[in-house]
Design a protein around this nucleic acid. Structure first.
Lengths: 229, 229
DNA sequence: ACAAAAGTGTTGAGAGTACACCCATGC
DNA sequence: GCATGGGTGTACTCTCAACACTTTTGT
């Protein structure tokens, strides 16, 4: 019962599961938290919406596969990307054994360019509150990803990766309010964010029809997600 | 560039990576945090210590594989088990592409029975501070697991799964002190643990040569790990 | 009586929460 | 001058950290 039962038998001879990478791409759009889904063009579950993903190539790292899929669907690189969990129930895919490593990406919706070559009816963002029927166990994956997203929001600065380079305090607050689906006190929120000492002032935004708000940028590079616990 | 490039080609025809499950089994023994390693009896890296693990069977869930490996090595079932991360660098195993799903288990060292059929020189617990050279990328996996263990200790009750059913406050404190490698104030520690309201008094332990301590048990079942944040 | 570990309370600092008014701009 | 969001301070509560002496038992 050790790692290899029959030393004479190469591990290459065993039947192997297929391995895919799926990505839960979160963004904020129209004041809602949304995820990107693609309509399946092939069986099984053809016509169902599903998470973007694909098979891992033999010489490709898991994260590289996730980055590749992400760029193929959204045209976006350099975003926050995190491995979430690996789902491997033997019956999750009717084609046979498919194990999927799930990643979560957070992107600024302004940066997204759904690829020109993609039929736009086949790719869309859905509000997390109005998810259509999805293929395989992708509902379970989405539920898990949402839990992890909220969790991550509490103790890190990942939220900033859903904003443009310069942003206002109220833009950050809006994102937190959308993700947690509740409102926060403006004074307490600003106090807390500013006390973290992670923002640089970037001058006033004059193009508004009210008192111009201060613009901020992150002191750290977007890649450096800070744990604020 | 969608999920299946050539609809005429079944996914079964693609070359596939092998998938293994490895387990980081933590326990407290001799006042140290230890992990179980097994000596590899086969190439590659024969003779090196490595995490226990093995290939995932085609009809076996990932967690079932982890439970099976765990029981094979320690004879223990019903322990805390959590999926940690999936490592899939294309070069992590010289035999070819091997993706490993890593689980973490926490067990009470009193419950362990290294299997009789196992040559005991091939299986041992190592202090986390004195890890020998290990095979593959297992050092990286161990470092990651330790980070996650500490993190989990901070906001949940997983620590209790390394204790017998009845235990004293100072036994819990000792475990926290070993894991975080620092001392805590006895009064503050007891106050915090008791304020969580998760313990039941179980009478005094009279078999000691000093003031008998109160024994406690968890109110919830061991399976229910409580998040204390 | 002594050794060993158990048990227990107070104080101060810092963080989180609740709460309301004036400000700068475009129209 | 009005509509729209921006910006700001105080008081209370609660949690966390620091800190030392008495108690119970076995030998």
């Amino acid at each position: 019962m050790k790692e290899v039962k029959h030393p004479s038998m190469e591990f290459k001879d065993y039947p192997k599961p297929a391995v895919t990478v799926d990505i839960v791409i979160f963004t904020i759009k129209d004041e809602e938290l949304k995820v990107l889904l693609v309509k399946r063009g092939v069986e099984p579950q053809k016509g169902f919406w599903a998470l973007p993903g694909g098979f891992v190539k033999m010489d490709e790292a898991l994260e590289s596969a996730a980055i590749r899929e992400l760029e193929e669907e959204t045209g976006v690189k350099d975003v926050y990307l995190e491995q979430l969990y690996t789902f491997g129930d033997p019956r999750r895919d009717s084609r046979g054994r498919v194990i999927t490593v799930v990643y979560m990406a957070l992107i600024d919706s302004e940066k997204i360019k759904i690829r020109a070559s993609t039929d736009t009816s086949d790719v869309d963002f859905f509000s997390i509150k109005k998810i259509p029927p999805v293929a395989f166990d992708h509902k379970k994956i989405l539920d898990y990803a949402l839990k992890r997203l909220k969790w991550k929001f509490e103790y890190s600065t990942v939220a900033f990766s859903m904003l443009p380079e310069k942003f206002t305090i109220s833009q950050i607050q809006k994102i937190y309010e959308i993700v947690f689906d509740k409102e926060f006190d403006k004074r307490n929120f600003a106090k807390k964010i500013l006390s973290l000492d992670i923002l640089k002032e970037q001058g006033l935004n004059k193009n508004v029809s009210h008192r111009p708000p201060m613009l901020y940028s992150l002191k750290a590079d977007i890649g450096e997600i800070i744990e604020i616990i």
